[in-house]
Amino acid sequence: MKVEIWSEITCPWCGLGSHRLDNAVERFEHRDEVELIHRSFPLSDRLPVGGGLSVRQGLKEIHGVSGDRVEVLPRRVEALAEKEGLVPYIVLENEVGNTRPAHEFLAYASAQGKNRAAWDQIFRAYFGEARSVFTVEALLDLADELGLDRDETRRVLGDGRFRQQVQDEARQAQRLGATGAPFILIDGHYAVPGAQDTDTLLRRLRQAWDATHPPLVQLPLADAEGACGPDGCAVPATHPAGA
């Protein structure tokens, strides 16, 4: 079973949604047969390259949030994360910025076989430690932590060789009907928008599995032991297979 999740790195619901999906897969009876793939859905083109804008400023100036909601909305996500064991989870006292370079870094890490490790690492760095993920140097530090070649990572970020892939992944999500992030697709057919809770995600995994793996129905054979009928032959009780 292939499970794909599209995320924006600095979206607090995406970090929480990824955590919930991990928990759902861990509880899923067929978890060893799940291929979990993270994909990019950048939503930060209006934000400054290099970061430096506080979450409070971003909510006010970019998203038009005003009044108490500037404090209430981030605190709500932080409280949900804490309730689900995702601590620390820093939203309000963080910075935002343009994430295009970070998504290109993640695409490169994925090409090196580190898709899930890279996404887990960048969410942990950003929400768990309030580290910048907006500058080349910050991304090179992440490359070191993932065991990626620092010089090659710098070249990748400089020449933009994964820029088209990031754009294509975002367009793919939109073609599938995504209007925001996170967005989950199970086996290419079952879409789950938003940061659904773990129990809901687990039900969706089970529903998708049951739809593609119908149970085996065994019909009875003839009553006569060892007799062959028009539909097959029963195994005699004296046969090794029936013993």
Rank of each mutant, 00 (worst) to 15 (best):
L176G: 02
A125S: 15
R20T: 15
L140V: 10
G85L: 11
L221P: 12
H213S: 11
S7R: 05
A138P: 08
S132A: 13
A107D: 12
Q207R: 09
R31M: 07
L47A: 14
W13M: 12
P193C: 09
P215R: 00
R100S: 11
E104M: 15
L205D: 00
Q165W: 13
P193G: 07
A227R: 13
Q57M: 09
I122F: 01
R76N: 14
V235N: 02
A227G: 06
E84Y: 09
P12Y: 01
D231S: 14
A111F: 14
R204P: 11
E61Y: 06
L221E: 07
D32S: 06
A237C: 07
V65E: 03
D68W: 14
L219Q: 12
S132F: 07
G180S: 14
R131C: 03
Q174M: 06
T198M: 03
A81V: 03
A227M: 10
L16P: 01
V70K: 06
E145L: 10
G64R: 08
K114L: 03
L36I: 06
Q174T: 15
L221A: 11
A237R: 09
I5K: 02
V217A: 10
V49N: 12
D223M: 15
E95R: 11
P215H: 05
I186Y: 00
R75V: 06
Y108S: 01
H239G: 01
E104G: 14
A107N: 08
P215C: 03
F134D: 06
F41G: 05
P236F: 04
E8W: 04
T212M: 12
L216Q: 12
A211H: 08
L139H: 00
R131A: 07
M1C: 04
S44Q: 13
E145N: 05
L53S: 08
M1S: 08
G52M: 13
I5G: 00
R31A: 09
E93V: 11
M1R: 07
E93L: 09
Q196C: 11
T153K: 02
V65D: 04
W209K: 08
